[in-house]
Design a protein around this nucleic acid. Sequence first.
DNA 1: GATGATGATTACCC
DNA 2: GGGTAATCATCATC
Length: 458
Amino acid sequence: MEDQARIMQSLGGVTLAAHSVQGGMALPPPHGHEGTDGDGRKQDIGDILHQIMTITDQSLDEAQAKKHGLNCHRMKPALFSVLCEIKEKTGLSIRGAQEDDPPDPQLMRLDNMLLAEGVSGPEKGSASAAAAAAAAAVGGGADNSIEHSDYRAKLTQIRQIYHTELEKYEQACNEFTTHVMNLLREQSRTRPISPKEIERMVGIIHRKFSSIQMQLKQSTCEAVMILRSRFLDARRKRRNFSKQATEILNEYFYSHLSNPYPSEEAKEELAKKCGITVSQVSNWFGNKRIRYKKNIGKFQEEANLYAAKTAVNAAHAVAAAVQNSQANSPTTPNSGFQMKDEDFQMDATESKNSLLSNMFSGSSGSFNLPNAGDMFMSMQSLNGASYQGAQVGGSVQSQGDTIRHAISQAVGYSDGLRGHLYSPHGLNVNGGWHDAPTPSSVTSPTEGAGSVHSDTSN
DNA sequence: GATGATGATTACCC
DNA sequence: GGGTAATCATCATC
């Protein structure tokens, strides 16, 4: 009843005068100047207010009937207007306090993070970019690609949950807003509810739902952070490279011992072959160079092993090339092939044997000696059918020339092996490698045909 | 569990 | 930016 008294006071002393003409009604005189007529109207208003205040205590039918009666009451518009104004005044102060809020920095941070992590915003690019970034931090390799996809899958899951929840919240917010608006509009027929107030109420609802959304964003961010940290923590959890990968890297290293600095292209190619990343190749060569330099004696055995291995590969490749040549040559169907150069006649078996013996005895005969890397690559090219002699350096035209070139490369490599077998090849007195141009590319002896590249070191 | 091997990281240099 | 050297952390072997 306090409220009623307050409203009565307001109606009597403050605002009623300003709204005394409503809907063509008679003007009630200002408070304090009313006479007996004023007393009557005051009584009338009090009566109406009493009816409004007690309407909720009545049964539905009674209330409906009373509501209709009140709606039709001649004083209703004036009273409604006054009540609206009172509410507006109090509402304005509330609104003034609530509006003009600066954008919440925490919300901005959350939004930015979700965008950066690829949870919000466009799906494909950022999500995979974030996944790739995390995967890059973790490292490459077959297992890591699994982890990569695992990370991506989990991120996608988080993204889906986030969007589903967000959608739910938005839907609930819209539904609730519509419901409240309808309710208020309906109520506004009997209660002093202005459109501004409805608007304000909608704002309040939106703010409430925004805070819920913020909680959702916060939870999502936490989930992403946990996922991310889990992957980043796995950074140091290394796995040894596969045996095959290590062999490929070692073969390249020892065949380029004079200048074990693979170019970017070479690194990429090695990475592709080994199923690791370029940075892992760089790491590997960095570690290898240092460890080799630190303990040449220890690595000598390994160097010999790889040198011998590569030499055998080379011999096999040459033999294969010779046989291939025999098979393809119309002039030399079954026997040894005839070279254009008189001083280069060799039976296939003989060539193989002499090559092998040369390789391990260190006798390279009168052949020129390209560097080990050249041989390293030539062998692969001979293993396959698509030998590209021009890329190796000479203008290889005839079949015989091709073979001669290959053999000379092989023998040249044996010289390279001699260096590897008997001395720390390529290291200068300061413990560093001799200056040499960076090789432009790489292939390993295990590689198939069609990947011959030049190596201009030495 | 001790130990060596090895991939990754970091600080520094050029 | 790429290389070295030192170091860390983990793996693999005994």
